[in-house]
Amino acid sequence: MPRPPGDAPIHVDHLPYVARLDARPIDAVDLVVIHCTELPDLATARAYGEQVRYPASGTGNSGHWYIDRDGRIVEYVPATRIAHHVRGWNPRSVGIELVNRGRYPRWLDAAHQAMDEPYPEAQVDALLALLAHLQDALPALRHIAGHEDLDTERVAAADDPAQQVPRKRDPGPRFPWPRVLAAASLARLP
């Protein structure tokens, strides 16, 4: 896939198991899902992505592209492969992960649900460049959603099982949806 417009080249660093992920035609992708890593840095996100979580296939959980705080874009999985990034929506979607601490390291504690880290300007600029590129490269791409829009399950809080917390909250309340939607001609789901 060629680089997006502007100063946002895509660095290809595929996960070791990428060839074991199911293949799909490029025109099967009509949805991009925005995530945040909820991890401290890109190196930790890479280590997490390399972990095999599905022994039968020898694959793990990962988005397709990761955008670091400085705007660097790294491709872990090509769009022609189905990555495991959002339950129930993977066959038709690609995932973009923004490096952001989110609720790290106490994701499911009721007392730690705030997501206070802002998304830096360089990271948002790179996201907009990548979205523009994907709209050119993926002919069926029409929709965008946050992970929190699609995975709405609530679970018992780790620090107080009597309380329920969202399993997924990303990209979270600091994500600049108005700016992204104004720049990308994609309809937000649901």
Rank of each mutant, 00 (worst) to 15 (best):
M1H: 15
P2K: 12
P4E: 13
P5W: 10
G6Y: 10
H14K: 00
V18F: 07
A19H: 10
R20D: 08
D22S: 13
D22A: 15
A23F: 03
R24W: 05
P25H: 12
P25R: 15
P25G: 09
A28D: 11
V29Y: 04
D30I: 05
D30Y: 07
L31D: 01
V33T: 05
I34H: 03
H35I: 04
D41P: 02
L42V: 10
A43Q: 13
T44S: 14
A45G: 09
G49K: 00
Q51I: 03
V52H: 06
R53F: 05
Y54G: 00
P55M: 06
A56L: 14
G58F: 05
G60Y: 00
G60P: 06
N61T: 09
G63C: 15
H64W: 01
H64Q: 05
I67H: 02
R69E: 15
R69N: 09
R69A: 13
D70Q: 04
Y76F: 15
V77Y: 04
P78M: 05
A79T: 07
R81E: 02
I82E: 00
I82T: 10
I82K: 10
H85G: 07
R87V: 13
W89D: 03
N90D: 15
N90I: 12
N90G: 11
P91F: 13
V94T: 09
G95H: 04
G95S: 03
I96L: 10
I96W: 06
R101A: 14
R103S: 00
R103W: 01
R106P: 02
W107D: 14
W107L: 12
W107T: 01
A110V: 10
A111S: 14
A114H: 07
A114Y: 02
M115G: 01
P118H: 08
Y119G: 01
E121H: 13
A122W: 02
A126T: 07
A132H: 14
D136C: 13
A137P: 01
A137S: 15
A137G: 06
A140G: 05
I144V: 15
G146T: 05
H147Y: 13
D149N: 11
D149L: 06
L150C: 08
E153I: 12
R154G: 04
A156K: 06
A157Y: 12
A158H: 13
A158Y: 07
D160G: 07
Q163W: 07
P166K: 08
R169G: 12
G172L: 01
F175V: 02
W177L: 09
V180C: 07
L181I: 03
L186H: 05
A187N: 10
A187C: 08
A187R: 14
L189A: 14
